[in-house]
Design a protein around this nucleic acid. Structure first.
Lengths: 193, 193, 193, 193
DNA sequence: GGCTAATCGAGACGGTACGTCACGTCTTACT
DNA sequence: AGTAAGACGTGACGTACCGTCTCGATTAGCC
C-alpha cells in the first residue's frame, strides 16, 4: 500500500480524445475543401460527427481550433536538415517557407489566422502565444555552421522572413519571388562577395 | 420629340450621390467605432440612413465599400513632399507607412482587407486592381533626386515595404520596429556610402 | 384628385396573409397530430412552410398562436340556436360545452392553454383578455325566452359551466357526467318543480 | 424457512434516503422561487446537491417528483376538524380548498400538475392514481353528523368542489368567489331548511 | 477481510429547441 | 428607375436542457 499514489484524476467522465482528434481533423479537411470563410462551428461539428455542444465545450471559435490543428504541423514543415553550407540552408528554408505559406494546408490555415488577426484582438492574442514563423527562422539560423559570426537574433530572422511574407500576403505570385528574394538576401548577407 | 435633348441618359431617377457619400462615411465611422468584424451590411445601411437595398444595389460586400472608401485616403496619406535628400525622403516615407498601417483609419481598413484577402478570392481580386502600397513606394522612389542611379523598380519598392509590412501584419510592436527597420534599410541601400 | 384619400398604408412590404393563415392552420393540425407538448416553434414553422423568423416576428410563444387560432372557432362551436324552451337550450349548450372541451380541436387547444395558464402569468393574461367560456354561457342565457325572471349574470353563467369544467379538467369521464350535471342543474334551477 | 431474517434486501448500496428528501425539498423550494415552468431536472439536481443521474434513477419527470412531494401535504391541508355543525364544516372545507388552490405551495403544485395533465397522458395517469380533491371532500362529507340524510357520494363531493375549481382554474379572483360560491352551495344544499 | 453489487458524485457525450442575428431577395408605395 | 421601408426564406449563432454514458469513490450484505 504505497502512500504516494492516490493521484485521483478529476471526477466525472474523461474527455474523449477521439472527439478531440475528430474535430481537429475535420477542421483540416474543411479548410482545404471549402475554405476558411465557409467553415462554421456547425459544419465542423457535423464533419467531425461530434455534437455542436462538444465543440463549444473545448473551443470558443474556429480560429482556436485551427490554431491548435496547425501549430505542430507548421513546426515540422518549416524545419530543414542542416547541410553545413549556409547558403544551401537558407535557400532550403526560404523554399520551405514559400511552400508552406502558399501551398501547405497548415500554411493556408496560418495565413487565414494572420488575416483574422488584423481585425480581431482575440486571434491576434492567440497568434502572439507562439511566433511560429520567427521561431522556425531562428532555429535555422542557429543550425548554421558559421554562426560564430552571426548571432541568431530575431532581427536577423525577421530579415529572412519579411520579403517572403510581404510577397505572399500582398497577393503577389510567389514564383516570381524566389529569384528576387534570394538575390536580395545574398546581396545583403555577403556584401563583400 | 423635343429636338435638343437626345442626350439619353438612362431613364429613371439618377443615382443619389448623397446616398453614396453617406454609405462611404458610415463605413469609415463604423470601422473606427466597432471594428471591421462587427460591421455588417445592415448596420452600415442604418448608420448611413439608407435602405439596405440601396447598399446592395451598388456594392456586393462590405469589403467593396471599404476599398472604395479608403483607396483615395491611402494615396494621400502615403505621399510625401520630396526634400531632395534621399535619406530624408525614405525615412519620411517609412514613417508615413508605419503610421498608416498602425494608426490611420484608412490603414486599418487596408489591413482588414488584406486580412480578408488571405481567405477570400473576391477580396484578393479587389486588392489586386490597385497595389496601393507598392504604388506609393514607387512614387516616392521616382521623386528621389539621385534616381539616376536607381531605377524605381517594383523590386526596390518591395524591399522598402517588406520589413514594415511584416512587422505590422505579424502583430509585432511597430515602435520597436522603427529603429531596426530604418537601420536595416540604410545599411542595405547605401553600403558603400 | 380627391383630397381625402391619401391614406398611406404603412411603408414597406405588407404582411403576408398567406403566411399568417399557414401558421394558424399548422398549429391546428399539429395540436391534433402530435399534441401541445410536442409542438415547438420550430416544427410549427416547418409545418407551415414558413421561416422560423416569420413566426417569431408575429407571435412570441406557441400559446399566443394557439389562442389566436382557436378563439373564433370556439365562439362558433359554443353557440346554440335558441329553441324557445329553456330546458332544451341549456341542455344543448351543456352538450356543446362538453363536446367542445372533450373532443373539438379548438377545445383541446383551449384546455391546453388553461393548463399552461396555471403556471404562466403570460398565458393567464392572454386568456383573461376574453373569457370565452363565460361569454358563451352568458349569450345562451340572454337568449332564453323566460329571461325575465333570471338576469343573465356571470354568476349564473358560472353555475352552468362549473360542473362540466370541473369534471373534464379533473380528468373524469365526460360521458358519466352528462346525466349528473344536467340533473344537478335542473334541480337547482327549478327547485319548486 | 428461517424465522426472522430471510428478508434479503437486494445486494449493493441501499438507496440514500437523504438524497430522496433533498430532491423533494428542492422541488418544493424551486416551485415557490422560480415556478413550475422554469423548473428543470437539472436545477432540481443542483438545488438538491445531488447528481442528475440520481434524480433520473428514481423519477422520470419533474411531474412525478412534484406529485410525490405534494400528495401528503395536500391531504393534511384539506382536512378539517369536524364541528358537528354541517354548515360550519362545509364552510371550513371550502375555505381550506380555496386557500389550498390559490395560496399553498402544495396547491400551486397541484394546479400545475392538473394543468400539465390537460396535454400529457402521463401526468393525467399520475393524477388519476389518487383523486386528492375528491377524496378530501368525501372525507369531509363522511364526517358530517347529519350524514344520515345525505350519502357521501362522489357526486355530492363534486358538487362541492366544482365551483371553487372552476373559478380558480379559470383565473378568476378567488376573493370575489367566496361569497358567491358559499351562497350558491348553501342555497343548493339546504333549499328546504 | 475480501467480494459483489448497486449507489453516489461528477461531468462529458450526442441531440434538439431555443431566441437572435445578418444574410440577400422580395414587394409595396413614393419620388 | 431609384429610393425607404420592411416582410420574406435561409441558415449560423451561442445557450440550455434533455437523457445517456463513463469514470472513480462509497457503502452495504455476503462469503
Amino acid at each position: 500500500m504505497t502512500a504516494d499514489q492516490d493521484n485521483h484524476g478529476p471526477a466525472g467522465r474523461p474527455r474523449s480524445e477521439e472527439a478531440r482528434q475528430a474535430v481537429l481533423n475535420a477542421v483540416d479537411d474543411l479548410l482545404v475543401e471549402i475554405g476558411y470563410a465557409a467553415m462554421t462551428m456547425k459544419n465542423i461539428a457535423e464533419r467531425a460527427q461530434v455534437s455542436r455542444q462538444t465543440v463549444y465545450r473545448w473551443w470558443s471559435t474556429k480560429a482556436e481550433i485551427l490554431f491548435e490543428a496547425c501549430a505542430e504541423d507548421a513546426t515540422d514543415e518549416l524545419a530543414i536538415v542542416p547541410s553545413g553550407v549556409t547558403v544551401t540552408d537558407i535557400a532550403a528554408y526560404l523554399s520551405a517557407l514559400i511552400e508552406f505559406l502558399s501551398r501547405s494546408p497548415s500554411g493556408i490555415a496560418y495565413r487565414a489566422l494572420v488575416g483574422e488577426a488584423q481585425h480581431s484582438k482575440e486571434v491576434a492574442a492567440l497568434l502572439a502565444t507562439s511566433d511560429i514563423l520567427l521561431n522556425s527562422a531562428i532555429e535555422v539560423l542557429e543550425g548554421l555552421t558559421d554562426s560564430s559570426r552571426r548571432t541568431a537574433s530575431p532581427e536577423t530572422a525577421a530579415r529572412l522572413i519579411a520579403p517572403v511574407f510581404y510577397w505572399i500576403f500582398s497577393g503577389k505570385d510567389p514564383k516570381a519571388l524566389v529569384a528576387t528574394a534570394l538575390a536580395d538576401i545574398f546581396v545583403n548577407e555577403c556584401p563583400a562577395a
